[in-house]
């Protein structure tokens, strides 16, 4: 097990982590908005339905949710439901993006959507009522007011708390290991099982660099929105 081999294995694991991270983000950002609207709905059953889901997703460990998402649907349907193994023919992809990966992606997506929805809600509720009214008296309808007046003010307010969650997500991807997804910590731990301890620190460096890049990008976004005050 030389340095080059370990590097290749960690890189492969990091690839999986990166795809899990990106996929979770792309799916949970819009899903979170849906959860948010649901939890703010004027229709009481809808509101409580979403509030309940959010409560469960935020109130139980993500690790538990991963296990549940992977096993429970199969158990409930007597094995009729299975997370898919795609056969794309691309060996790396098929080996790493297997059924375990899709279950984990699903679990991460709903879990992070629940957290994001609460951030959205805080952001939306912090925009003063007066901004909506100013739009209405100018003849705008609800949709126009939301997208043209409110949304960017929401974005500005939620970038800092979102950044926090996004950085947490980077490290949370290591939880995928619990059902054997071959992500970065899985790869590092595989090396440890063979008696090598240093690869976990090497893996730590991957996380650090990636979080560093994200911090920079999110900081830029925050700065880009600093031209106005809310």
């Amino acid at each position: 097990m030389d340095f080059a081999t370990i590097t290749a294995e960690l890189l492969s694991g990091f690839g999986t982590s990166l795809i899990l991270f990106t996929g979770t983000l792309l799916l949970s950002l819009p899903l979170g908005l849906l959860f948010c609207f649901g939890s703010m709905s004027k229709i009481v059953p809808v509101k409580w339905f979403f509030k309940f889901i959010i409560w469960v997703l935020r109130g139980t460990p993500l690790m538990l949710q991963i296990v549940a998402v992977f096993y429970v649907p199969g158990l409930l349907t007597n094995g009729a439901f299975r997370w898919p193994d795609l056969n794309t023919g691309w060996q790396w992809f098929d080996a790493n993006m297997d059924k375990r990966f899709w279950a984990v992606l699903f679990a991460f997506t709903i879990n992070y959507a629940a957290y994001f929805s609460e951030i959205y809600r805080g952001g939306i509720q912090s925009v003063p009522r007066g901004q909506y009214e100013a739009g209405y008296v100018l003849g705008m309808n609800k949709t126009q007011v939301f997208f043209k007046v409110i949304w960017l003010q929401v974005v500005k307010r939620i970038v800092p708390p979102m950044s926090n969650e996004i950085i947490t997500l980077v490290k949370d991807t290591s939880l995928a290991k619990v059902i054997g997804v071959t992500e970065l910590m899985f790869a590092a731990d595989a090396a440890r099982a063979k008696g090598l301890i240093w690869p976990i620190f090497y893996a730590g460096a991957f996380y650090l660099v990636f979080v560093g890049v994200l911090t920079f990008v999110l900081g830029r976004l925050e700065k880009k929105l600093s031209y106005f005050k809310v």
Binding site: G130, Q131, E133, A134, G135, V137, L138, G139, M140, Q144, K148, V149, L152, Q153, K156, F228, K229, V230
Partner: peptide
């Protein structure tokens, strides 16, 4: 039209955009 006590300009738009927004929509 209504002018509010506390102005309620749209903070993310410059002066010109504040005035044109509703017209453009």
């Amino acid at each position: 039209g209504l002018v509010f006590q506390d102005f309620r300009l749209f903070p993310q738009y410059n002066v010109l955009e504040n005035v044109t927004l509703a017209m453009n929509l």
